[in-house]
Amino acid sequence: MSAWKEFSKGFYKQNPVFKQALGLCPTLAVSSSVKNGLGMGLAATFVLICSNALISLIRKSVPNRIRIPIYIVVIATFVTIVDLSMAGFVPDLHKSLGIFVPLIVVNCIILGRAEAFAGKNNVGLAFLDGVGMGLGFTLALCLIGSIREIVGSGSLLGIPVLSASYEPVLMMILPPGAFLTIGFVLGFFNWIENRKKAN
C-alpha cells in the first residue's frame, strides 16, 4: 500500500511542478511543443530514477557532511550519460532541448528528491519515488506543452488538430506564452484546491 502511495504521489498530490513549484526553468523553456516536453520529461525521469536508486544504495556509507557534493556528482554523472546518449541517438531532440539537457543537473526536483527521500529510504521505495516524480514532471511538461502547441500552432505532436482557418496565437509558443500558461495553470489548480477546502 505504501509503495503505491510513494509511486502515485508525484502525479498530482505532490506534483513537482504544480504543487511544489520546482523545476520551473525547463518547464518554461522546453514546453513550446509536446514533443520537446516529452523528451525533456523522460530525460529527467531517467536521471531521477538512477540517481534516486544509487543514492539510496550508498546512503549509509556517505559521510553526512559531504553528502550534497556527492549527490551532485552522482546526478551530474547520470546527466552526462543522458546528454551523450541523446547526442548520439536522437540528435534532433538533443538540439532542440539545447543547454537544458546539461542543466538537468541543477533541476531542483532531482537534488530535492535525493535530499528529501532517497537519502532516507530503501532502494525499492526510492526507485518508485523516482519513477512517480519523474512521470509527474513529464505529465506537467506534456500538459503545458499541449496547451501551448494547440493554441500556438494549432497542432498536437506536429499533427494539425484545429481547422485550417484557425489563426495560431503565436504568442503562446514565444516566451511570454510560457509564463502566462504556467501562471494560469497554477491558478487553476489553486482554484480546485480552494473549492475542495470550501466543501
Partner: peptide
Amino acid sequence: IPKSLQGIPIAFIMAGLMAMAFL
C-alpha cells in the same frame, strides 16, 4: 487579486506581460 491567482500564479502572469515587452 482573485484568490486562486495570488502568490506564484500572478507572478508568472506578470512575468509573461514583461516578457512581451522584452520581446
